[in-house]
Design a protein around this nucleic acid. Structure first.
Length: 503
RNA sequence: GGCGGCGUAGCUCAGUUGGUUAGAGCACUCGGCUCAUAAUCGAGUUGUCGCCGGUUCAAAUCCGGCCGCCGCUACCA
């Protein structure tokens, strides 16, 4: 049976419309999922929406909707955004679904049965107007930062998760699993947090209705984070399909933004341990997409919706840009000018033009029939090295490196053409070999680039006359030099990526 | 305050068991080519490797100090 590969995006909170930051995470996961499908893995790629909590309840009240109606609206926008971006998720989970309620109640019930959830009292500084608690860091002067009124000290009976008991188990887990959190700087951050000591966390609320009911005490609902994290287990079949869950857990790999490290790298593994389950295999942390050097936010009005850029660049160039331009793990500063530049350089000039020039010369010198490559072409070694590097980078979830490696092959091929000048040579076996080499590179590039640009890869594939589609190929065999059979019709067609005006 | 990280060509960055002339891509300059989307190919320019001091035959790479920047420091979806 194929190796299971389970990858997740965070579930996105439905108080915000999809922007390029959400899309960044999702496209990265999608490309990795597609890569693993090429490897023949049994891929399960999950995304979805997080819908409970006070913010949604209030936002719904403000416009006269039920919380679920409110969530329906925004959740649908995420579904549409991912459809537009050619995201190949195998499931889309919503925390308002019955299957999730089942899983959450089972999961937290198990933790309670294991003695790690207990009733206790939470005391904090409370603002009546906000109906919310503030920490000392948030309100050092004891005044509500929003209403500027004195906070009251209030105690509430809540159920607590005994997170403090998992300090040592977590440290042991990190010790035994050096790759648990990547990159290592984020791992240090999580570790530092654990080492400073962990406090128990109140995980239920009585002041909210919009949440998963606590099965053993109907006055409470679970605090939103506590139900949200469990989505990863829900979708894997926890509580509903034990056999499936057995297969998908704990091979799961989470991809998250750096703002939610604590939840995924501390709370979540502790919760799993408390429930008698294993922590996830790996958590991959990426940075933020900045605009003008600043984080996107509603108040700064610097949100960019993916569709705005897709309208100008197209879906595949959009995907390519964010996969290639930002080193995974670092913050990346987005600029429209930079995107145009990379589009022109990488896509129009290097890749698009390579296909274009090869197709033209094949038309002139080989009668439009693509010749087979030479078995001992110097490009064969380049292709092999590039494949090794790309495969390694995809495995580590560093798409920028995988694509950088792939483009190395494109550049080498342009140079190879320059040296051999097939457009000058007399038609014949030698000329055919040079053109065949270039076509073979295009075949391999189509496969290697298909996780990033699925539609483009299919287009290249069909223009060089190959039957089927790049997605149907199986790695690593399909990347071996010599797969292009020759004797296939090569079609020039319109430019894949018309150059854009830099201004 | 505590813990952690960063500061390398105009830009984005790579570069740890310390060792020949410090690298890549982009940008720029010159040249070639004209099959190709004024694309492509080749050559080349630019760096006190934040500053000061130390260890060493030898440091971007180790140690100390300093300057500048940043992240985390719990119930923010």
């Amino acid at each position: 049976m194929a190796r299971p590969f389970y990858i997740t995006t965070p579930i996105y909170y439905v108080n915000d419309a999809p922007h390029i930051g959400h899309a960044y995470t999702t496209v990265n996961c999608d490309a990795v999922a597609r890569w693993h499908r090429l490897l023949g893995d049994d891929v399960f790629f999950l995304t979805g929406t997080d819908e409970h909590g006070l913010k949604i309840q209030r936002a719904a009240e403000a416009v006269g909707l039920t919380p679920l109606e409110m969530a329906d609206r925004t959740s649908e926008r995420f579904v549409e955004a991912w459809r537009e971006l050619d995201i190949s998720n195998d499931d889309f989970i919503r925390t308002s679904e019955p299957r999730h309620y089942t899983a959450v109640q089972e999961f937290l019930g198990r933790i309670r049965d294991n003695g790690h959830i207990e009733l206790d009292s939470y005391e904090g500084m409370y603002c009546v107007s906000c109906e919310d608690y503030y920490t000392e860091a948030q309100a050092p002067d004891g005044m509500c930062p929003i209403h500027h009124r004195p906070l009251e000290t209030l105690a509430e009976e809540n159920y607590f998760f005994r997170l403090s008991r998992f300090e040592q188990p977590l440290l042991d887990w990190y010790e035994a699993h050096p790759d648990f959190v990547q990159p290592v700087t984020k791992r240090n951050e999580a570790l530092g947090f654990i080492k400073q000591g962990l406090q128990d966390i109140s995980i239920t609320r009585t002041s909210i209705d919009w949440g998963v009911p606590v099965p053993w005490d109907d006055r409470h609902v679970f605090y939103v984070w506590y139900d949200a994290l469990i989505n990863y287990a829900t979708a894997a079949g926890f509580g509903t399909d034990p056999e499936r869950f057995e297969r998908l857990w704990p091979v799961v790999q989470h991809v998250i933004g750096k703002e939610i490290i604590r939840f995924h790298c501390v709370w979540w593994p502790a919760m799993l341990m408390a429930a008698g389950l294993e922590p996830p295999k790996e958590v991959h942390v990426h940075g933020w997409l900045l605009v003008g050097g600043e984080k996107m936010s509603k108040t700064k009005l610097n949100h960019i919706a993916p569709s705005e850029l897709v309208a100008d660049f197209g879906v595949d160039p959009y995907r390519y840009h964010f996969l290639r331009d930002v080193a995974f793990g670092n913050d990346g500063d987005f600029s429209y000018e930079g995107m145009v530049q990379r589009y022109n350089t990488d896509l129009a000039n290097n890749l698009g033009n390579l296909l274009s020039r090869v197709a033209t010369v094949v038309g002139k010198k080989s009668g439009g029939v693509g010749p087979a490559p030479s078995p001992d072409s110097p490009l064969a070694a380049v292709a092999a090295a590039v494949y090794a590097d790309a495969a390694d980078a995809w495995e580590r979830i560093v798409p920028s490196e995988a694509l950088e490696a792939t483009w190395r092959l494109i550049r080498e091929t342009n140079a190879h053409l320059e040296v051999n000048e097939p457009w000058k040579a007399e038609p014949g076996p030698e000329d055919d070999a040079v053109l065949g080499d270039a076509l073979e590179v295009l075949r391999i590039v189509a496969i290697l680039a298909s996780p990033a640009m699925p539609a483009t890869a299919r287009e290249i594939w069909s223009r060089i006359g190959l039957p089927g589609a790049p997605e149907d190929q199986r790695l690593p065999e399909a990347a071996v030099w010599g797969g292009y059979p020759g004797g296939l019709p090569v079609e020039k067609g319109d430019p894949l990526f018309p150059r854009m005006n830099p201004s």
